[in-house]
Amino acid sequence: MSTSPFSTYKEFLEAKGPIYTFANNPTMIGFFIVLTVLILLYFIYATFAPRSQSKNSQHPVALGVLLMVGLSSALASNLYNFVQKEGQPPTRRVVSQRSLEMNQPEARRFSQRRAATPYAAAQRSLNKLMKSVWKV
């Protein structure tokens, strides 16, 4: 396969535009740019990888997957609980917390707004997960 955009020397010598390989084949250039991006991603990944990989359990991919699965699981669990709570009577704990907050109107409003967001649920899950990872 010829990578040259020129068939004769005269054409090559008198070229006024691109003379590089695959100048007449943008698909190939696109392919090589995709390879370049993949090389870069591989490089970035490699910079995080530990030099010695004696234990499979400490492999960054294994650790990453474990963290992602754990986080997703905790998030899903919290979101499920949150959705469940919306349609059910408050538990005794919530009742007691609410009765406590009745005496502090500002704090009560803030607490209600904050606790009602999915973000807060996710943050609680993350804190829980980090605590468990930290213990390990």
């Binding site: 590089y20 390989t21 100048a23 250039i29 390879l35 090389i39």
Partner: peptide
């Protein structure tokens, strides 16, 4: 060998 002809993306792949 032909760095004056290669497209930059081709250079990256060959050098890598």
């Amino acid at each position: 060998g032909a760095m004056e002809l290669y497209h930059p993306s081709v250079v990256i792949v060959i050098a890598f």
